[in-house]
Nucleic acid binder design. Structure first.
Lengths: 122, 122
DNA sequence: TATCGTTATGTTATCAGAAATATAACGATA
DNA sequence: TATCGTTATATTTCTGATAACATAACGATA
C-alpha cells in the first residue's frame, strides 16, 4: 500500500562509492566467492558487477573485494574483512535510518488518500 | 568531496506520491502561481510537470494544487494550504533525516580513501 | 468576438544507460 | 600441455524514460 522508501548513497567525487546496489552485490560476492556467480544470482551482467566492484575498491581506503584470475576453477573473488565491515555498518545505518524516517513520517503518511490509484498498466 | 545523499520517497500503490522532485515543483508552483512558469523555472517540460501534479493530487486526501483554465491570463495554478503543509512537513522530515543519517554515517565515512578518484569524463 | 497565455493531452523523436556480445588473458590441475 | 571457468575489457545493440512537438479547449478582458 503506502510505503516510505529511503535510499542512502555515499558519493566520492563524481562516483557513487556505496549504495544499495553495491551492498547487495557485496553480499552476493561474499556468499558465492565469485563476481560472475554473484552477478548471475542477481541477474546483473558480469560487466556491470565488475565495474561496481572497481568503483568500490577505488573509493575506500582498502579493497572490499580481492580477485584472483586463472587456476583450476578459473579464479574467484573474496570479500575482505574490511569489505565485510563496510557492508555491516551500511546495513546497520540503513536499518536505523529506516526506523527514524518512518517514525518522523507518520503525520505526512496520514495525509495520503486511503486507497492507492488504480494501476493503469494493463 | 565526500557526501551522503539521502532520498526519501513516499509511494502509494504503483506510483510515487511524493519525493524530492515533486517537492521542488510544488515550491515553484507556490512561487509562480502557474504550472508552466514553475516548469520553465526548473527547466522541466510543462507536460512532465503537469503529470507530477496529477499524481500528487490523486495520491493525497486533498489536492495540493488547484488549477484554473482560461481567463485573461490564460489560467493558473495555486498551492493549497494543504499542499503547503505537505511541503513543509516533507522538508522538515528531510532535514532531520539528513542530520540523523550523517551522524550515524561517520565511521563509514572515515573508511573512504581521502582523495576521490580522478574524473575520467574528459 | 478576437486575443492571449495557460491548462490539458496525445504523438513522435531522442538519447543515455544498460544489456548483449565478443575476446583475450590467466593459471591450477589433471 | 590442454582444459576450463573466471577475471578483465572493448564494442555493439537495445530499450525505456524523457524530451520535443503538436493541438485542442478554455474564458476573462478589451
Amino acid at each position: 500500500m503506502h510505503a516510505v522508501k529511503i535510499k542512502i548513497q555515499i558519493t566520492s567525487g563524481n562516483d557513487i562509492a556505496f549504495g544499495p546496489g553495491k551492498a547487495d552485490l557485496l553480499e552476493a560476492i561474499g556468499r558465492y566467492g565469485s563476481i560472475s556467480a554473484a552477478a548471475k544470482s542477481m541477474n546483473m551482467s558480469y560487466k556491470r558487477a565488475w565495474e561496481l566492484v572497481a568503483v568500490m575498491n577505488a573509493s575506500f581506503k582498502q579493497p572490499l573485494v580481492v580477485t584472483s584470475v586463472g587456476g583450476s576453477h578459473g579464479g574467484g573473488a573474496i570479500l575482505t574483512e574490511f569489505g565485510f565491515e563496510v557492508l555491516r555498518l551500511y546495513r546497520e545505518v540503513l536499518a536505523k535510518s529506516d526506523q527514524f524516517v518512518l517514525s518522523e513520517m507518520q503525520n505526512l503518511l496520514s495525509m495520503l488518500s486511503a486507497l492507492p490509484n488504480p494501476d493503469l498498466t494493463s
